[in-house]
Amino acid sequence: MNQQINFTLSLADTTLILAQRNSEWCAHGPILEQDIAITNISLDLLGQARNFYQHAAHLIGSPATEDSLAYLRTEREFKNLLITELPNGDWAQTILRQFFFSVYQSLLYTQLLQSKDEQLAAIAEKSLKEITYHIKWSSDWVIRLGDGTAESQQRMYKAIEYLWMYTGEFFIPADYETTDLSAMEREWSLKVKDVFEEAGLIMPEKIFMQQGGKTGNHTEHLGFILAEMQSLQRTYPGAQW
């Protein structure tokens, strides 16, 4: 039971924090159309997060609610992947993170379709349609910038260098995870390699991989995200729209 709750919370936290990060682009996008695109993705992720939190709250039982789980837990209790809490950086960094994450997410959720937890399987099924578009959108951008100008390519390499060490965590299982992550890792690398090849980008060598997010050991960035996201509920407990 505890395992199931923690796993559900990790899915919820990961999607919530990435939604929060992507939402920072709202009104700051490089062009109006892309501003709307990244905000749409942010809202898709937030919708997924809500589904997972509601399910987790149901598993935990009263008085837990989706809001208490999102707004009243501390940094060490959050189980999101480190890559989701990293700063947006420039557009290249944002779209590359989204690409890495969406490919992983689609592989993970495809496995979730077989989950014994029917609610998780249902959320995964609903989310996969959204994720398919996120992959298309973000891989188009990886190809566009990788195969673009000297500057756009250089920015892609900077983003790869920054983000790559956070991609290993996708496949390092936490004790509450039962899915087969090693098979997923191979598929993930193949998909990323395909897109990188089309983008004219070279895959990095095997390097040291960061981990810890799944078990609550975060980078210095998460605290600031939570401070901003939770300040209202913590200042005015129970505040409603």
């Binding site: 109006l32 159309e33 892309q34 709307i36 749409n40 188009d140 566009r144």
Partner: peptide, 20 residues
């Protein structure tokens, strides 16, 4: 109407801007 670099991007932008 909207701005886009090419037709593929225009379709995606149209999806995001006009069919939400």
């Amino acid at each position: 109407s909207l701005h886009a670099a090419d037709a593929a991007m225009a379709i995606e932008n149209a999806r995001d801007v006009y069919t939400r």
